[in-house]
């Protein structure tokens, strides 16, 4: 169990008095290091439109290997919209148009001709509300490997399910009731089941859209612990409304405001010494 208590985060919030911001509120260009060496995902000039509405403007951002990058910002700033670009989930939204280049291993996954089925196997997603299938726990985890044909035979499939549940830290809790419905688990267990379902297809990147917003503090702590372990194998991109959570789990943080990426940097730097005035205002609780 993580000893860090909830309120007292390991990274101290910047005190209001000692202002470090040097960039004025009116500047909308991104400040900070948007690039990393050997990125897993590189976004160039990503724009999203919902019909006529220009939802996010010219985002340039890298997601590195084995890192957790937190996307923070006030509601409606485009964090989730951006996140959903990374596995083309925005395709399912009527009237949504994504422009720009999203590169994974040199391939632009935003190109029209790219098949989203293998892409979504590479970039998994965990949603805000736990959404297990109304099927057994086993079937929930086995679904991905089964549709992609990843398992050779029944024994292999069982092994994938067991390892995925183990990695998701759920195995000891459910090993005796794999045939019970996944929807019968508690909220936190359901969310870990969804994580197990996502990692069962061995993605490269896991997108998490406020994965703990519907969970109590103990379940949240478990998921955060889990994320720290998963980071060793995967890149994780997490949208969160909790700045404490961003501070606790992530290595890099990106701050969005009204569709603009305002500031990107090491998490510690963002929370201790933000450069942009808007970032400082947000993390010190002056708005948002």
């Amino acid at each position: 169990m993580n000893k860090t208590s909830f309120v007292d985060s390991s990274v101290k919030m910047a005190p209001v008095a000692g202002s470090t911001a040097t960039v004025s509120r009116d500047k909308r260009e991104t400040v900070g290091d948007i690039r990393v060496d050997h990125p897993r995902v590189r976004c160039n000039n990503v724009n999203v439109y919902y019909g006529d509405k220009h939802a996010i403007h010219n985002i340039n951002l890298d997601v590195g290997n084995n890192e957790i990058i937190a996307l923070i910002g006030p509601s409606g700033c485009g964090k989730t919209t951006f996140l959903r670009c990374l596995n083309r989930m925005n395709d399912t939204i009527k009237g949504c148009r994504v422009e720009g280049e999203i590169l994974m291993e040199g391939q632009n996954i935003n190109a029209r001709e790219v098949d989203v089925v293998p892409l979504r196997a590479r970039v998994g997603m965990v949603f805000q509300k736990p959404n297990p299938f109304p099927k057994s726990i086993f079937e929930n985890v086995a679904f991905g490997p089964r549709i992609h044909g990843l398992a050779q035979g029944k024994a292999d499939l069982e092994e994938i399910v067991v390892t995925s549940l183990q990695k998701a830290g759920l195995w000891t809790e459910v090993k005796d009731r794999l045939e019970e419905p996944g929807t019968g688990l508690s909220g936190g267990q359901q969310q870990r089941l969804c994580i197990a379902r996502t990692i069962a297809v061995q993605p490269e990147v896991i997108l998490m859209d406020e994965p703990c917003s519907a969970l109590d503090p103990i379940a949240t702590a478990k998921i955060e612990e889990l994320m720290a372990e998963l980071r060793e194998q995967y890149s994780i991109c997490i949208v969160t409304h909790s700045m404490q959570q961003a501070a606790r789990v992530s290595q890099r943080t990106a701050f969005f405001h009204l569709g603009d990426l305002i500031e990107v940097g090491e998490t510690e730097q963002i929370f201790v010494a933000p450069t942009h005035q808007l970032t400082e205002d947000y993390i010190t609780g002056r708005f948002g």
Binding site: V116, R120, A121, F127, I147
Partner: peptide, 27 residues
């Protein structure tokens, strides 16, 4: 049928047809 079920299936890489036949239709 809740859209979250569709998102869940699409999110692990099910094709639209698989999403419909395996999850949406039974519900």
């Amino acid at each position: 049928v809740p859209p979250s079920i569709r998102e869940a299936a699409l999110g692990v890489g099910a094709s639209p047809l698989q999403t419909v036949t395996l999850h949406v239709l039974p519900l």
